[in-house]
Design a protein around this nucleic acid. Sequence first.
RNA 1: CGGGGUGUGGCGUAGUUUGGUAGCGCACUUGAUUUGGGAUCAAGGGGCCGGGAGUUCAAAUCUCUUCACCCCGACCA
Length: 475
Amino acid sequence: MKNKAITDREVDFAQWYTDVVKAAHLAEYSNVKGCIVFEPNGYAIWEKMQSVLDKMFKETGHQNVYMPMFIPESLLKKEGELIEGFAPECAWVTQGGAGNALEERMAVRPTSETLFSDYYSSKINSYRDLPKLYNQWCNVVRWEKETRPFLRTREFLWQEGHTIHETAKEAEEETLRMLNVYKTFFEEYLAIPAITGRKTEKEKFAGAEYTYTIESLMYNGVALQSGTTHYFGQKFSKAYDIKFLNRNNQQEYVYQTSWGVTTRMIGALIMVHSDENGLVLPPKIAPRQVAIVPIGNDEQIVQLANSICDKLKASGVTAFVDTTDRTPGYKFAEHEVNGIPVRVELGKRDFENGVITLARRDTREKITVDMNCDIVNEVKTLLDNIQSNLYDRALKRRDELTYVCQNMEEVEKIMNTKPGFVKAMWCGDQECELKMKEIRGTKSRCILENEEPVGDKCVCCGKKAKHLVVWGIQY
RNA sequence: CGGGGUGUGGCGUAGUUUGGUAGCGCACUUGAUUUGGGAUCAAGGGGCCGGGAGUUCAAAUCUCUUCACCCCGACCA
């Protein structure tokens, strides 16, 4: 009974989450405090995410580059707000080899705006050099005090896009365009409904003019900031002197953006879809989509398993035959805990009846199909079905956990009983934002720009409201 | 930084009071029987007890010291 340790997720969410991570062999806590070891199953999910996203970035005209992981202090300090925002969680290298102190200490990158800016400043001369649409896949280090696998680790993997443009308009469009790329990725691939909107002044990225965010709601009603896109305007280009000769033959500073998503998405995947039997992966992101389990070692059955596997692979489904020396029950449970969307069960009993059993991970239902049916088609339909069912299920839950509040009593009541997203009007005053925070750490998630207001008075002070805001308790 | 706790095969632990060089569960290996929801039986392998020093005929056990981790508090956000 090896993975029965996965407790009821209602009881202890943190423990349940950790159990799923371990049982599905996604990651182990490392001996390096606050860091994790990515196990093959976990890394495969990241690779899959990378391949999908990378394709989307290329399609929108971006190119991959790679910058150093060390940032000299003087370079990092050129832009005041950024260093202020990141100083508390910067790791510093102070020694080179042989124990010699460095003349200037270097930060291990917490983010690479400064390096990109420095690079751009020496490369850009004319409007003809613009835009530059770059992306980098790398790791970053932020010295967090409390850590949790995938959701908050000291070192994590991500992609960071950094673009520079000729005009503010173009850069602002890029900020929104990439936000929508993320939204598409979340909804179509991860099957996670996403709320997108602008961050408040208080919650925005250090150094940005403004920040857009993609927010998702976890199973237990806690919010997770899952990705961000930033518009920098000319803040960095002025600090790092990124000038170009514009079409009017005048020197001008470039307009800049950055955007990123991280391995935190793996955590989101777990907390949105998974259950007490372990991981549940949406078919489009599952590294292995179909597990074929022959029961017993009857030669005919093994042959059938192999032929089904070949057919599935030929049509682009990632399938494998599990011939390991384990009992069927063990294999079923193992593939379930690993989140493999569809399992094909082949045994003597079915064989004699001329049928095949298919088991779906999302609902754990089993269906039987005729042995002579178009098995590839059946499996593909089932995979599509699982993909959309996961999305629908998550959407329904998010809607059920989203409340509209008109005053502080209502907010308090909801946050203290069953947390979730709260939609409420806000006057734009930071005082009110701070008062909300006193209720179990409720923070503004984002400002909804394209939705109907739910009132005209600030939920906190009662004065005239400026924005419709989504609030929540965050990870 | 203050208070408390823990450290024993890969993991989880018993043994420490009352010294006699380690026991159990899971995992692992081999063989047989099995295989439709985490199999059974049998036989095996692996630890000198976080590190160092001391007391003793003899130390996982007592003493000193050191390291690591955890919890509470303080600090920081």
